[in-house]
């Protein structure tokens, strides 16, 4: 790592020089990883016209179940597997509520989030009241000592496998077409012989599994422990990113990187005195404000999926 020359100049150039660029990029990739996993999961779900506000709770679930399984078995791999299974179950629950029962999506999603957060907190308190358990074995970074590239394998997979694969699947495969058809016009999709319910079930199960991986990344790779506010609004950030990206994969990844760089920059700038005066909270609020501003500026041009927020009833 390049040692950062510490600058005490209060001028702009002073703090530009003082930023350790390599450390910044490295931190940015790590911070963006859970957002990429969960954000792409949300893209998959929203492509079928379902707004999954259960994302925040699902990420908590992944972080918690992954941690619990890894702690009990001693293997982060089994932890990740357990997290993915829990994600499929959470997706199934959301599908049951919004597809089969046709309930209001915001209320179901919010209810699922509140339920899952409470369940995780309850179980954690029950099992480890007053303790702070940590994993003996967590995922290690791949290339210790190498700047930027010293990342977790889940980070590499997120950027080099998941994002291209999701892009390709959504764009060029039959599955992608089906998701899109259901999301844009489910009556037409049904007439064309695509099962609306099955497509939405699959999308919710796969998407929620990706969200739990995003959550589990925090406990299994970054922290090695579980805290009661571990997700801390990252799910809402993903909701924002996906709309900002207009339901496309690469802009979601790009948005995650932008969010991550402001956060990483904040960590760096907190070191330099010149920038200490900008409150961290303002920087953290930027992604939300950016999305609202973007929505306000683009206005009517934001094209939501045609069957957004609607339950399908045949006949």
């Amino acid at each position: 790592m390049v040692a950062a020359p510490r600058s005490t100049y209060s001028c702009v150039w002073g703090w530009v020089v003082s930023i350790d660029l390599l450390a910044l990029v490295g931190a940015m990739l790590t911070i963006a990883t859970p957002l990429v996993w969960a954000g792409i999961g949300e893209v998959v779900v929203e492509r079928t016209g379902i707004l999954n506000l259960g994302i925040e709770g699902t990420m908590y679930l992944g972080a918690f179940i992954g941690f619990l399984a890894a702690l009990r078995t001693g293997s982060p791999w089994l932890g990740l597997l357990a997290a993915v299974v829990s994600g499929v179950v959470a997706g199934l629950a959301m599908a049951l509520l919004t597809v089969t029962l046709g309930l209001n999506q915001h209320v179901s999603g919010l209810g699922l989030t509140l339920f899952l957060i409470a369940v995780c907190e309850f179980t954690f308190r029950l099992l480890y009241a007053g303790e702070r358990p940590t994993l003996e074995q967590k995922f290690h970074t791949l290339l210790p000592g190498v700047a930027v590239l010293n990342q977790h394998w889940l980070t590499y997979v997120a950027f080099l496998v998941l994002a291209p694969a999701a892009w390709w699947v959504l764009r060029s495969t039959g599955m992608g077409y089906r998701l899109h058809a259901v999301g844009e016009n489910f009556e037409a999709a049904d007439v064309a012989g695509i099962s609306v319910a099955a497509t939405r079930y699959v999308a919710l199960m796969v998407g929620s599994a990706l969200m739990t991986v995003g959550g589990a990344f925090l406990t299994l790779a970054v922290l090695g422990s579980y805290t009661l506010d571990i997700i801390n609004g990252r799910g809402w950030v993903c909701i924002a990113l996906v709309i900002f990206a207009q339901w496309r994969v690469w802009p979601t990844v790009f948005g995650a990187l932008i969010f991550a760089v402001t956060d990483a920059l904040q960590l760096q700038l907190a070191i330099t005195t010149a920038f200490g005066s900008i409150p961290r909270e303002l920087m953290l609020a930027l992604p939300y404000l950016a999305v609202i501003t973007a929505l306000a500026v683009w206005g009517r041009k934001v094209r939501y999926p045609g069957s957004y927020l609607r339950a399908y009833r045949r006949g």
């Binding site: 809402w236 909270e281 609202i292 206005g299």
Partner: peptide, 29 residues
Amino acid sequence: LKKRADIDEVVTTLLLNPVALLLVQGLLN
């Protein structure tokens, strides 16, 4: 935004929640 440009209020109202919490934290810090 809903009235002027028919922008979905679910997302905008939801996203202002963490902003309000950050505002409280920023003021208290």
